[in-house]
Every structure is written in C-alpha cells, then in structure tokens.
Design a protein around this nucleic acid. Structure first.
Length: 423
RNA sequence: GGGGAGAUACUCAAGCGGUCAACGAGGGCAGACUGUAAAUCUGCUGGCUUCGCCUUCGCAGGUUCGAAUCCUGCUCUCCCCA
C-alpha cells in the first residue's frame, strides 16, 4: 500500500475527524511525521473472543496511519489482559486463565486482518502479543529494570489509580501501568516504535510508557489519544438492549450490525462518518448537508452503515445486509421469490414451527419474539405484531404454515424494526 | 471490641398488620406522530389454564383468621465510637 496523496496532512485529517484529543508533543509529532514513516502501536485487550465496535476507533486510526505510509503495530494484550487495567472500572476485574486469554487473542487477531495490510512491501503492519515478553520476564528483572523508573508518587497521581484509592485497588491492578509502559519500551527497542495511540482513557498508561522510555534509555517518543465515542443521548456507545455490538458475525449478525449503524441518531451520524469510515472529507461534508436538507432520506445513515459493514464483513455481505433491509422496510414481502426470501432472512432470527398450525401466542413465545405468554398477549393487543406484513391484533389467532408465503414462511414483525422468520 | 441503621421487582426508592403483585422515578417494551432518527403524548412492565389463580418484598422459623409489614435466629451491607 502506498501513501495517499492527501490534500491535508495526516494530523490535520485526524483533527478534522475529531480524532485528536491529547498529544504529548503536537508540534514535535507533526515534525517527526513530516520527516518520514514512523512505527506506531495501539493496544487491544483480549477480554472476550471478539472485538466490538468500541474497538473500531483505535483500529481505524492505525489503518489511517498505514495508508499514510506509516508502520502500524497492533498489540494484543495477551499478557496485560491477564492483569486488568484499573482505569474506568470501579471494581477489581476477574482474571482469566492463560488458556482463555490465548484463545481470545487468536480470534481477535483474525478480526483485525481486514483493516491492516500485513503484506505491504513498503510498510507492512505487524501484530504482536505482549505475552511474548511479559510472559517470560522475571520478577527481579521487572522490578530492577522497570520498576526502578516508577516513583510511587508518580504512580499514585495517575487518574486510573487515584480514582480507585477510595474504593480499593489491588497491587496487581496498581502495577498495570508498569506493564503497559514496558510494552512501549519493548516495542521501541524491538521495532523502533515511536508512537502509541489509544482512547483518551489510555492517556495515563501512554504517558507512563513515553516517560519510561525517556528515563530508561533516553529515547523520545510520542503519545496520541482520540476522544471516546459518545452517543447523542449520553448512553454508552456500541451497546444496545441486547448487549454489545461485536465484530464477530457469530455474535452479531451482519444484518444486525448494519441495522445498528443505520439507526444512528441524526446528531451523531456525521461524527460517526468521520470516525468510522474512509469517506473523504468532501464526501462527508456532502452527506452532512443531506442531513439538514433531506433528513428523511437518511442518506448519511445508509452511507455509514454500508461503509462500516463493508469494512468489517466485506462488500458482498454489506450489500446483502442492505438488500435484507430494503426488503424488510420498503419492499413488498409477498413479491419476494422463495430463494430471495431465504437469502434475505438468512441473518434474521429464525424459528422452525412444529406441525402445520399453532396458537399465535404460543408461537411468539416459542420463536423468541415475546418473552412470555403474558408479554405475547400484550404485544398482540398493543398492535405490535404483524404477520407477513399484516397487523394481527387477535390474541386467539391460529397461525397456519400453509397460509404463509410460498406455503411455509411466516415473517413476524414486532414493533417497528424487529423481525423474525418462522418456517 | 462497643453502639446504630439497613436488606423490597432491571436500578433507585416508597410501604411499616388487611383495600399489596406492592406508590413514585429511571430504565425497558409497545402504540400514535415521523424518516428504521430525535422530541412529545399514551399504554404496558412477576407468571399462568387471566373477570380467577399461583409465586414474589435477604434466608429460616414463629405469632395471627390474615404479614413486605410484628417476634426469634441466621447471613450480608453501611455508619458512628474504640
């Protein structure tokens, strides 16, 4: 991959995208980037077997750096993940076993592959696992060579620690910053890595790293954080009532993933386009206009959903998710051919009905549409349920498979945008 | 170690012998209006074989015709004094 000829510098573009929050030495970094390619890294915690949309911002910044000609390193915290970052948590974290963390690490690694080019001739991306060095370092070595550079008052002053002094923090989590700082030092030694990026909650850990490098070997390195993504209504980004939005298609189907983005609030959509897509500055400005001139068309949301889904799941899958969405929200279900229907609903929760006919209330519960019979009756009486496009408010309705589309498919819709397929 | 306060549904929080499946707020779900958005208004929010029944108010017993409400023991949490 070669560096793109951008009308603005990388830092300027990141600034436009609202992705610059804190930089250790903004002028120095701009100067350094102007001198030539730099090696940088961002870390990812293996706390589950999949990344979530919450990890995307950091990942995309690495990608942007690579596209600008720099050498990104994605660090998977196989070692630090076994300790737990105290920042942002009110309680001590449960520690996973080495085997579990190892499993998570492998899966996360594969999820990064669409974002980073590992085979570039000029500036290939790399993946490292900090377990490789943290796993084998001795206690004495760590304390003498690394711990010596950490004054206790300095450590106590970090927000991540300070906020936990009242509620309690173990020595394990207290030491976390030492390990993450050591990562930076190790990458500086091994790969000449000069920059660490992360979310704004990582600022303390990042500066701990650059400070360590200066104290231990006299090197000068940079840190850069991006703001944490916020939602218009103040809720935590990337979470729905059903839980987090994952990158893994096993955890969040591409259709659900697409829907997550397409449902973005008008107030946030431009911000998300900047953070989560590679659309150009001009394209984003154009889409921004459509939000005010023709909000009902939801062009910006569609573009956002398409771009991010294509990035994570591939172009074909994104088109499929779009096709399903069109069929569900704008198409006439009856017009769909059987194979189209099957294809369209591949990602939608599906239930196989036993026998040819069943009481609607029982069916809704069995198919997971409603959580209980009482809830099912309520949904029906509130006009929330429609079968194959027709509202059904009759609690004693009996569903016959033979009445379905193509003699066997019943499309159940609950509320405005929850779909289920019964066959 | 001594003294005090408290544990109620997803969360916060009323209730302090019957009218309590349990006020209220938040959250969630749904309807109307819209644009698969937001805001607003309305309904619902333990379960079922639903004009009734069953199981819930930290746990285990007890008093009573009847308890979330009173008594006893247990577990846990918080505060004050040492």
């Amino acid at each position: 991959m070669t560096a793109e000829k951008l009308p603005m510098t990388l830092l300027e573009e990141l600034a436009f995208r609202g992705q610059l929050y804190q930089v250790t030495d903004a002028d120095g970094l701009a100067e350094r980037l102007a001198r030539g390619p730099i090696t940088l890294y961002g870390g990812f915690d293996p706390t589950a077997d999949s990344l979530t949309v919450g990890n995307l911002a950091t990942l995309l910044i690495l990608t942007r750096f690579q596209r600008a000609g720099h050498r990104p390193i994605a660090l998977v915290g196989g070692g630090t993940g076994m300790i737990g970052d105290p920042g942002g948590k009110s309680q001590e974290r449960a520690l996973n076993t080495a085997e579990v963390v190892d499993e998570f690490t492998r899966k996360i690694r594969s999820q990064m592959e669409p974002f980073l080019d590992f085979d570039s001739g000029t500036n290939p991306a790399q993946m490292v696992n900090n377990y490789d060095w943290l796993g084998s370092i001795g206690a004495i070595e760590l304390m003498r060579d690394v711990g010596k550079h950490f004054p206790i008052p300095y450590m106590l002053a970090k927000d991540s620690v300070k906020s936990r002094l009242e509620t309690g923090i173990s020595y394990t989590e207290f030491s976390y910053m030492i390990l993450q700082a050591y990562d930076f030092l190790e990458l500086y030694r091994r790969h000449d890595c000069e920059l660490q990026i992360g979310g704004s909650d990582q600022w303390g850990n990042i500066t701990a790293g650059s400070d360590l490098i200066r104290r231990a070997v006299g090197g000068s390195c940079f840190g850069l954080t991006c703001p944490l993504v916020t939602t218009a209504d103040g809720t935590k980004f990337g979470k729905t009532e059903a839980g987090a939005i994952w990158l893994s298609p096993e955890r969040t189907t591409p259709y659900e993933f697409y829907q997550f983005w397409v449902n973005t609030d008008d107030r946030s959509v431009v911000n998300y386009l900047k953070v989560f897509t590679f659309l150009s500055v001009d394209e984003i400005i154009q889409l921004e206009e459509t939000v005010t001139t023709n909000p009902g068309a939801r062009e910006a949301q569609r573009a956002l959903a398409h771009e991010v889904t294509a990035l994570v799941h591939g172009k074909q899958t994104a088109l499929k998710a779009e096709r399903i969405s069109r069929a569900l929200f704008y198409g006439e279900l009856q017009e769909l051919e059987e194979d189209e229907l099957q294809l369209a609903f591949h990602d939608v929760p599906t239930h196989t009905m036993e026998g040819d006919e069943q009481d609607l209330v029982d069916l809704l519960v069995a198919a997971g549409v409603s959580s209980s019979k009482r809830q099912a009756r309520q949904d029906i009486s509130q006009n929330a349920i429609s079968l194959n496009g027709d509202r059904c408010a009759d609690e004693s309705h009996t569903v016959r498979k033979s009445d379905g589309l193509h003699g066997k498919y019943i499309v159940v819709r609950r509320g405005k945008n929850k779909y289920f397929l019964i066959q």
